[in-house]
Amino acid sequence: MSEWKAFSVEVADGVARVTLTGPGKGNAMGPDFWQELPEIFAELDGDASVRSVVLTGAGKHFSFGLDLAAMAGTLAPVLADDAKAAPRTEFLREIRRMQASVTALAECSKPVIAAISGWCIGGGLDLIAAADIRLASADAKFSLREAKVAIVADIGSLHRLPGIIGEGNLRELAFTAKDIDAARAERMGLVNEVFEDQEAVLAAAHAMAREIADNPPLVVQGIKDVLEHRTSPAVTDGLRYVSTWNAAFLPSKDLTEAITAVFQKRAPEFKGE
């Protein structure tokens, strides 16, 4: 495997372990994350020795989501008061590039099991929604946080989660941007099972990955292909729609206020502008 800045990758006995490593606090998703994620899963997809994948986060948390500080340069041009077609078009391309990064996980022919501990926020939820199976430790917390920072989630949560947790649960999480614990996540079907701690959930994820790896690999990959064929057209259409919507409507005074409030460590004051 290649050397990575935002991940570490280990392969043993047919199972690959992909670990988010940052470098942002809480494994936040900066430029290296978005570039390397599709490259990693392309390599795993083409490696016949890999039959299943465990995805997890280094340290106490899975991911704090988008690294706003590291990605500020992406938002700055389109937030300008005079932003016209050129910066909006470039922003549209950037959204679709980020979408494609997460979609690479969903499209990987090898089943992916997410092992989640601590916080899984925003982009972290987009990421685990693209996994095939999700397991959590008892301390895991989840938040579809985008509404609180004046953003319409556009990397996949709104399109992949309906089939996982149902419309009602998704709308509650998306509209309120509330935090939920592992027990609530298990009840709504976001995670298959909750384990005592991080060590236990990682052990369970590897045991399940090993169980998958022991099955005929081409059959397992065929099952995933058939399942993805059922859902991917709607997801693809939805991602294109939300990327276009955000390129047109995401830039706002509320978004600027949200970002400013994050850096000033205060509550934002939204005015619908």
Rank of each mutant, 00 (worst) to 15 (best):
L173A: 01
A100M: 10
D179A: 15
L170Y: 04
A138N: 07
A150I: 10
G123Q: 03
A147P: 11
V152F: 15
D126C: 12
P111S: 05
A140D: 06
H159P: 09
I151S: 07
V152N: 14
R96P: 08
G168I: 10
I155Y: 09
R88L: 04
A106H: 07
A185N: 07
I116H: 00
A86S: 12
S143G: 11
L202S: 04
R171V: 14
L190Q: 03
R97C: 06
A174D: 13
A203R: 11
V194E: 01
S117M: 06
A182I: 04
K110C: 07
I151Y: 04
E167V: 14
A150N: 02
I113V: 06
A177G: 07
A136V: 01
I128A: 02
S143T: 09
D154F: 13
L158T: 08
S157W: 05
A203D: 08
L170C: 08
S101P: 10
D181V: 03
V149H: 09
A200T: 08
A83C: 06
F175Q: 15
F195T: 02
L105D: 00
D179T: 15
A203Y: 05
L105A: 01
A153W: 08
L144I: 11
K148H: 14
I121C: 10
L170R: 08
A85I: 15
R145E: 12
W119I: 14
I116A: 01
V102W: 08
C108E: 05
L92N: 08
I121Y: 13
L127H: 03
E199Y: 10
Q99K: 08
P87S: 03
T103F: 10
A182E: 02
E146Q: 13
M188E: 09
V149K: 02
S101L: 02
A185Q: 05
A147G: 11
D132T: 01
N169G: 03
N169M: 03
A147E: 15
E172P: 13
T176K: 07
I165M: 07
A136H: 02
E146W: 09
V194L: 01
R187H: 11
K141Q: 15
A100N: 11
N192V: 12
V102I: 13
S117C: 08
P87M: 07
A114H: 00
F175N: 15
S157R: 08
E94Q: 14
R134S: 12
F91S: 00
S101V: 03
M98A: 12
R145V: 14
A86Q: 12
N192G: 12
L158N: 07
G166C: 05
L173E: 01
R184M: 14
G156V: 05
I113R: 00
D181K: 04
G118R: 00
E172F: 15
D139F: 11
V152Q: 14
G163H: 05
P111K: 00
D179P: 11
Q198T: 10
A153S: 11
E146K: 05
A182W: 01
I165R: 06
L202G: 04
C108A: 03
A136L: 03
R97W: 05
I180S: 03
A138T: 11
E186N: 15
G118F: 01
V191N: 02
M98P: 12
R88M: 04
A136K: 00
L161K: 04
V102N: 06
K110N: 05
I133V: 12
R184Q: 14
L135M: 06
E199K: 13
A138W: 05
E199R: 13
D126R: 08
